Simulated scan of single mutants.
Amino acid sequence: MISAETLGWIFVAATVATLPALWAVAGLPRYAPGRPNDQGPLRRIADGGHFVLGNGYLRAIAGCALFWNFAFSALLVTMVPLVTDAFLMEPGIFGIAMACFGLAAFAGSGIAARYAGRIRPNLLLLFGPASSVPAVLLLLTVAPGGSPFAIYAAFFGLGFGPAMWLIAQNSVRQIVSPRDMLGRVNAMIQTTIYGARPLGALCGGFLVAATAPRDALAFIAGCFALSFAVAAISRLRTIRSYGDLAAAEAA
């Protein structure tokens, strides 16, 4: 937890922790550059957006990611006033909750990778956003001055299912996107993800200032529900295996 005693070394420790990541990146394979594209960057971005919007799978992935990341960023802004003012707990509780989120992401990614051939993709693509809704609603049950374990469980739920969803949707992206369009498709999805985050943070901050942390939390739960709704009504729910999807795309 960050405190007056830890400020002297916490950022140094965080910097040192990035060294294994740099070492891992340095070991990635190197590929020969592809044929240069004569199109300008704006035209390529427009082509990528047009392709994503025109494909039912990619359109659903983008919509699901948009609402989920908007809601998650709004939640992060809301959590400190929620913990301190509504739950009457120490702000360091939020740091532990984020650690639970990270551990859950590792666990969800590991399970998705290990059992990818045994779990139908549509289950992962629906479970990820669906599990976020009860996880956030769990925060509404926390009593002032009570136990923080519900907070930890909520953030574990927010990390576990969505990490599995992230792996599954990446597989779908690679299958349904032509090789020459994959980079542009990935760029559009990433733009959707990272573009939604500052908007969610601004909205979360405005709601906390204008209403109360618990009211903001109810709005955030609704945004997570929209993320699930996008996936539930889309073609993502029909993907029973990656092999069948690849065969259908090749036909």
Rank of each mutant, 00 (worst) to 15 (best):
A32V: 10
P33A: 13
P33S: 08
P33W: 03
P33I: 04
P33N: 02
P33E: 10
G34Q: 09
R35E: 14
R35W: 00
P36V: 00
P36G: 01
N37G: 02
N37I: 11
D38Q: 05
D38V: 09
D38S: 12
D38I: 01
G40N: 05
G40Y: 07
P41S: 09
L42E: 06
R43V: 10
R44F: 04
I45D: 00
I45E: 00
A46E: 14
A46D: 07
D47H: 13
D47I: 11
G48P: 06
G49Q: 08
H50W: 11
F51C: 04
L53G: 13
L53F: 13
G54F: 07
G54I: 03
N55I: 03
N55Q: 11
G56L: 02
G56Y: 02
Y57T: 03
Y57I: 02
Y57G: 02
Y57C: 06
L58W: 10
A60H: 10
A60M: 13
I61L: 03
I61G: 10
I61P: 13
I61T: 12
A62P: 08
A62M: 11
A62V: 08
G63Q: 02
G63I: 00
C64Q: 13
C64Y: 01
C64S: 15
C64I: 00
A65Y: 05
A65R: 09
A65T: 13
A65W: 01
L66K: 05
L66Y: 08
F67M: 12
W68K: 01
W68P: 00
F70E: 04
F70H: 06
F70Q: 07
F70V: 02
A71Y: 00
F72I: 12
S73P: 00
A74G: 14
L75N: 03
L76Y: 09
L76K: 06
L76T: 14
L76C: 02
L76F: 13
V77Y: 05
V77D: 03
T78A: 14
T78Q: 11
T78H: 04
T78K: 07
T78N: 15
V80D: 04
V80G: 05
P81T: 05
L82T: 09
L82K: 07
L82N: 08
L82P: 08
L82C: 02
L82D: 08
L82Y: 15
V83R: 08
V83N: 06
T84V: 15
T84I: 14
D85C: 01
A86H: 15
A86Q: 12
A86G: 06
A86Y: 14
F87I: 07
F87Q: 09
L88A: 15
L88F: 12
L88V: 14
L88K: 15
M89E: 01
P91H: 06
G92W: 03
I93H: 14
I93P: 00
I93F: 08
I93W: 09
F94K: 13
G95W: 07
I96W: 04
I96N: 06
